[in-house]
Write a protein that binds this DNA or RNA. Structure first.
Lengths: 233, 233
DNA sequence: TGTTGTACGCTTACATCGTAAGCTTTGTCA
DNA sequence: TGACAAAGCTTACGATGTAAGCGTACAACA
């Protein structure tokens, strides 16, 4: 139509970095399912197809976004006492995922890790090894902690409420719809625990985390990994 | 085109149950992203739109599928010693999710639980309460175990290999592509642990699980929930 | 200064998806 | 036999990801 459009208000050129940044911003607001190539283009003052000059396809875009998020996780200074370090890392992950809830399910499920991801993992393993963890115990610790951390985050993300008060209100609403005599235990837990003032599901995070850290601490202290004997297939 | 098609080989009528069953079968094979209303219809010898007589929309379909999966989880007989019961439940969940990998992320993230889901949760809570867990400790146990179980399943599902041998082969391939001097710890763990014969990531499951169960056992035994003091917001 | 190669952005197009609206067939009972 | 409701079908629309190919502006060189 317009013969010679000066192509976008010259907001500078596009680049993979700018595309990723914009994509993360969009996902942070509307969730990952509202992130479409067209909207992303529009947000950058560009047509959808132009994005493909900087990103192979949508999967590649999402991989890039996820790797960026990994980069946001604080890594404790090398040499930090391991338990403190692992605790801080766990908390940092939870904070990062609170900023980018859409990333929760992706962190563990993307198959092509980027440099941010690899660096993060390497640092964590290095820290544990440096603290005297055997190789198998390091693997155990890594697996157990990450399963827990991301599993918790996944659960937390899907809660339909944010504050304790909202929780109580919603819980009441849900309970009211259930037959009074069904699910008695669920009801008890809800009324006597979830609906109490001051309840916040987020507090559960550190309880489980400390359970795992306690167990790992015991395992390192006995200087050996009791369960390392792997059954030979 | 064909004037009077005898509508499907009269495979009997459709029903919500038949739709759900077929949908689960399709998802088990091609994954949830390959499940479309048209394919599901075709699989049942029916047009896509006919499904909407038995299912409100695709979300409702997925909710129904997820609730079915919850129903497949073995619940230990009431009265079973709690630790055994929780261990068996965890293992059963892992088996069920191995059959239905697509369900892994959904189990924790659907907001409208069906009867299968509610019954499952009620039974678990009841079992713990019956074993002497206080209400807050029950909440802790439930949260910690489920976070871990589903987090582990999520991780496991996304692994691009199934057997130990495949793992070793793939690990070698990936390592070869990385700069030799980068990520030394990741490399060590891979070479000295992951690539060893007999390695199977699945074995990690029970290690972390037992860490949590040990901790919970200690907590019940002292007859009180040490961390229950909730900070008042 | 003029020429040209190329990286970047645009236009058009298509297959696939969920599903709204309304029509037709079929099975049941009076 | 006729009427009605339930079940299934047809058609259509607005997303969505992305393939293919076009136009252009700018940097490097003549």
């Amino acid at each position: 139509m317009t013969p010679t459009k000066p192509a976008a208000p010259a907001r500078g050129r596009l680049s993979r970095e700018r595309v990723l940044t914009a994509a993360i911003t969009l996902a942070d607001h509307g969730g990952i399912e509202s992130l479409t190539m067209r909207k992303l283009g529009a947000h950058l003052g560009v047509e959808a197809m132009s994005l493909y000059k900087h990103v192979a396809n949508k999967d590649d875009l999402v991989d890039g976004m996820t790797d960026r998020v990994f980069g946001e996780i604080d890594l404790p200074a090398p040499g930090t006492e391991w338990r403190t370090a692992m605790r801080q890392r766990a908390i940092s992950i939870r904070q990062v995922l609170a900023r980018h809830p859409w990333a929760t399910a992706l962190m563990q499920s993307r198959t092509s890790p980027g440099p941010g991801t690899l660096h993060h993992h390497d640092a964590v393993i290095g820290l544990l090894r440096g603290a005297g963890f055997s190789v198998p115990l390091t693997a155990h610790a890594f697996s157990a902690l990450d399963s827990y951390i991301y599993g918790f985050a996944l659960q937390e993300k899907s809660l339909p409420f944010e504050t304790g008060d909202e929780t109580a209100a919603l819980a009441q609403l849900i309970l009211a719809q259930l037959p009074a005599d069904q699910y008695p235990h669920l009801r008890e837990l809800t009324v006597e625990h979830v609906m109490q003032p001051g309840y916040d599901y987020g507090h559960e995070f550190e309880y489980g985390l400390d359970l795992l850290l306690d167990g790992l601490e015991r395992a390192v202290q006995q200087g050996k990994d009791v369960k390392s004997a792997r059954p030979r297939r």
